[in-house]
Each structure stands twice: as structure tokens, then as C-alpha cells.
Design a protein around this nucleic acid. Sequence first.
DNA 1: CTGCAAAGCGGACCCCGGTCCGCATTGTGT
DNA 2: ACACAATGCGGACCGGGGTCCGCTTTGCAG
Lengths: 224, 224
Amino acid sequence: MLYAGFMSAAPPSAPTPQEPAESPQLLQLGLDDDEPCLRADAARNRARLLEAAAGLVAARGADAVTMEEVAAAAGVGKGTVFRRFGDRTGLLMALLDHSEKKLQAAFLNGPPPLGPGAPPAERLRAFGRAALRRTVEDLNLQLAAEPDAGRRFTVPPYRVRHHHVSMLLRQAVPDADCDVLAHTLLTQLDPALVHHLMHQCGMPAQRLEDAWTDLVDRITGTTA
Amino acid sequence: MLYAGFMSAAPPSAPTPQEPAESPQLLQLGLDDDEPCLRADAARNRARLLEAAAGLVAARGADAVTMEEVAAAAGVGKGTVFRRFGDRTGLLMALLDHSEKKLQAAFLNGPPPLGPGAPPAERLRAFGRAALRRTVEDLNLQLAAEPDAGRRFTVPPYRVRHHHVSMLLRQAVPDADCDVLAHTLLTQLDPALVHHLMHQCGMPAQRLEDAWTDLVDRITGTTA
DNA sequence: CTGCAAAGCGGACCCCGGTCCGCATTGTGT
DNA sequence: ACACAATGCGGACCGGGGTCCGCTTTGCAG
């Protein structure tokens, strides 16, 4: 039962038939809410927990909040939190779920240049810009939600991003090892790195966006 | 006192006057041992702890070993471990220190193509190859030693590597944002990623080396 | 050799994430 | 309406990382 609560972050919203294999087997026409079918009380508690957690995090910062506090604030027992969200990371990721899904929707079905329709290199540039901006929005939470080293790359949101970038790369530079290259690109959007560069090195957000663009240019060979 | 024990991993061995600013102010002619000047008993305990830790880790795997066990095996109190090494990560990093220092020495003063003398792009390729191989050697330990998100980029060994790669990049592609680019390159050597690619995706080590080479080529523009 | 400050020691202690299991709630079939 | 699985609940409990502070050891100065 270690992974409970992770499904909340996984599935993108809809298939996109216009481009080859845009989102493969993990399609699932998304009703906005997740969690297959929860018993009435369970659903209520889940909602309460998310609300309580959001409140506490907003008030005191993510890593000053303990799981027990969240449980108490939601008026449920500690066990309930863990059963629903698996672990601390799971709860925190659930808080980010909505915003992540919005981004996913945007690059999976949204309008170009983020969504399908634009040339791959341009979609890549747009993707980085969008992801970067979203990351900057609530860096702290995202930092606290970072899963431990062992799971960083297996967590659903990351997989979706990787799949997407990998696909765009295959279109732009068919002769490269796009799977690995996609990871390389994605690590430049890693909250921990963004935090380091902005808050510890004092770089402005713009510079990160520029660096992303430059990297995409170098990798794809395009210079636009 | 949070950072105690981290100096053990920091300083490279010697300045290299033959190349511009090879290792800037953090030069310090290195006697092989570190830890400024430890009281007799302290030094003895430190050694015992490292030995005990190494033994336990080798025997049962890094993350099956508790700090208390290490302390007990070394015949000292728990507090001593933490005073000496700061935290769990600190202890684990200390175990890796020797091997890391060897690598540092190799790319700071060693013979080309790793050390000074070869053209920067080639040094970069050699660096990745060497770092990758070292990482693969004791992946588990390295995985367990990974510091939490907040410190990943401020920990001395990383800084040294970053400084080095950054410098080589500045020589190879003066017009790029080498500071950021260096981070991007380095993340491809991250133990967590290497683990993921090799053990969860089943890639052979050779493929990672090739991917590194390819990435360096793309970024520097060289194709050798 | 002796005295004394500084450095080090160690284990009791705290905290928090995560688990477990006996009990309560649900909702379904009849 | 009732019974009875199945699902969920919650708080006691555990383990391990990290801290603290009264005591010991060290080593220097006289």
C-alpha cells in the first residue's frame, strides 16, 4: 500500500489524435476529480484534509507543518492522512495536483505553441517557459513536495513530462538518444535547481528562461 | 553546528597554474587527511566510526544501517557521530570522500585528456566518462548519501565539479550561459538518474556514456 | 607535576513520519 | 428494515534521526 494516493497526480486529460502517439495508453477522459470511487466519508475527509493542509502550508510554510497537525486541523486521525495520501510527499503532491494538471492539459491539448500544431522545437521552448513559470509560482511547496531520490523519476507528473519532452525531441532530433536527453532537459526545470539558482545565486527568472531556450536551440540545432 | 563534518569532502589537492583559474581561492595544498586539527580522542573516534560505517554499509547496504548501530559498532555514543559528521548524509559522504578526492585530483592535475592539456571539449567528454564510472562503482552508497533537495547544489563535491565544468564550458563556448549549462550537464551524472536509467529502465552503462558524449558534442558544437 | 579552560563525550530525550489493528460506518442485497 | 461484508477510521505505538547538557578527557601553561 506504499503508493496509495499517487494516482491523484497521474492521468492527463484527453488523447490527441492529431499527432502521433501524443499520450499513449494512459489516456483517460478526465472528470476533473480523481480517486476512482471513494466512500462518502472517505471523500469528505480527503477534501477536509486537502483544505486543512493548504491552509497550514499557506500560513506557515510547507516544511513547518507536520502530518499530525494537518490531521488535527482536518478533524481526522493521523492514520487517515497516510491511508489516503501514502506519505508526506503524497499529500504535498496532491496539493500541487490541480496546477500540474492544468499545465498538462495545456501542453497536451492546448493551443500552440504549447499544444500540438507548432513545430517541435518551438513547442519545447514554450514548454520550458510554461513549466518554469509554474514552478516559480509556488517554489516552496514544490521543493517540499520533492520525492526522495529513489522516486524522483517514477512519480507520475514527472513521467508525463518526460514522455512529452521525449516525444518532441524524437520529432526534432530523430538521431539522438531522446529518452536520456529528455531527462537532461527536464532537470533544468527541477524545483531544487531553480531554487538554488534564484535564491542562492540570485539569478532572475528571465535568465533561467533564456538558458532553457538556449539549451533547446543547442540540442535541436534550430536557432530560431 | 549544522554543517560540521562537511569540510571533509571539500578541498581539492593543489592549484594548477598552467590554466587560467583552474581552482580559484579554494586551493589548499592537501595533506591527504582533512579535519583541521582534531584532539587525539576525537581523531581516533572519527577513524573508528568511518571504519565501522564502511563495514556495516558493505555488509548490509547503506540504507539498512542506522546511526545508532554505527555508533555502537565503533564503541562510541550516538552524539559523537552527529557531532563529527553533522548528519547521516555527512557520514555517508565522508565514506565517499576518498574516491571523490581521487577523481578531483585526476581532473584538476592529472594527465590529459582528463587533466589540463587537452582541448576543453575533450576534457569534458573525459570528465563525464570518469565521473560516470565512479558513480556506477558504488551507486547504492552514493544514492543513500544524496543530500536533501535544499543542499544538493551547495555541497562541496558538487561545487567543485560545477566549478570545473563551468570553466571548461567557458573555454569551449564563451558565448553561452555556462554557469547554468554546467548544472545541466552535471545532472546527467546524478546518482539518482543513473540509478533510474540503469536499474529501472535497464540501460547499459555504455549508453549513458554515449549520451554524455553526444550531449557535450551538441552543446559545444564540436563533433569529434 | 598540577590546575584549569577548552574540547569532546554519550546516552537520555524529543519529534515526527509511518504502521497497525480493533472498532465504527457505509451501502448493498434480500 | 436488517444483516453483514467491505471499506474506512483513529490513536496507540514504533523506530530512527537529531539535540542537549552534565560529565570526562585532553593538553597547554606555569
